[in-house]
Design a protein around this nucleic acid. Structure first.
Length: 203
DNA sequence: TGACCGATGAAT
DNA sequence: TTCATCGGTCAT
């Protein structure tokens, strides 16, 4: 079993954009009954709470679903979407500031066989190249909502670092309803990675 | 209790 | 570009 070096709580207690950029290159790991699966984060999106019309926390008031985002950073926010998929987010910033980072794509690193089994495909580029896909591949489900990412079930660890110039920023996916916020460059990805959900329009 | 709808994915 | 798919969410 590989030995993982967890990110500190402090890592998460920053604004969503800083955390979204910082997460690139880190390892997202999930231990399940049937084994361990992990991937290197290559694509994220920042959601900035009450000031962000695209955020689930845009109202500024917690609801049963969004409650976890109003706590301190470093916990999982997992929600169900389109009647069939889960999306995994990292809660960012301090208690009372509901920032979150949607993890959109991973470069598969460990448990490839398990991922393939769960996803029903053997193509490495197709295993974790989307928010719904990576949840399927890692076995992330509703029960992971609220999980402590500094814990040992679903967590994030140090990974192979990116070159400083290899991060590109572009508009977020699927948030056209958010008016001008739809154009904010709050999607971050590793330049040239073949494992992102969809190639950026331009770099 | 019910009207409304989505931070997707896969096929075409 | 189209559409399958449907439970969740939240206000009432």
């Amino acid at each position: 079993m590989a030995d993982f070096k967890l990110l500190s709580r402090e890592f998460y207690l920053r604004d969503g954009i800083a955390v979204a950029k910082g997460l690139l290159g880190k390892l997202l790991v999930c231990r399940g009954q049937d084994g361990l699966a992990a991937g290197r984060i290559v694509e994220t999106e920042a959601y900035m709470g009450a000031v962000d019309p695209a955020s689930h926390a845009r109202t500024g008031k917690p609801t049963p679903r969004t409650e976890i985002m109003y706590g301190p950073g470093g916990y999982a926010y997992v929600y169900f979407i389109y009647g069939m998929y889960f999306c995994f987010n990292v809660v960012a910033n301090v208690k009372g500031t509901p920032h979150a980072v949607l993890v959109r794509a991973l470069e598969p690193v460990e448990g490839l066989e398990l991922m393939s089994l769960r996803r029903g495909t053997g193509k490495r580029q197709n295993l974790c190249s989307g928010p719904g896909k990576l949840c399927g591949a890692l076995g992330i489900v509703r029960e992971h909502n609220g999980a402590d990412l500094c814990g040992n079930k679903l967590f994030i660890a140090e990974g192979e670092a990116l070159r400083p110039d290899s991060v590109s920023a572009c508009p977020r996916i699927g948030v056209d309803y958010a008016g001008e916020a739809a154009a904010y460059p709050w999607r971050f990805l590793e330049k040239g990675s073949p494992y992102v959900s969809k190639p950026p329009l331009k770099e």
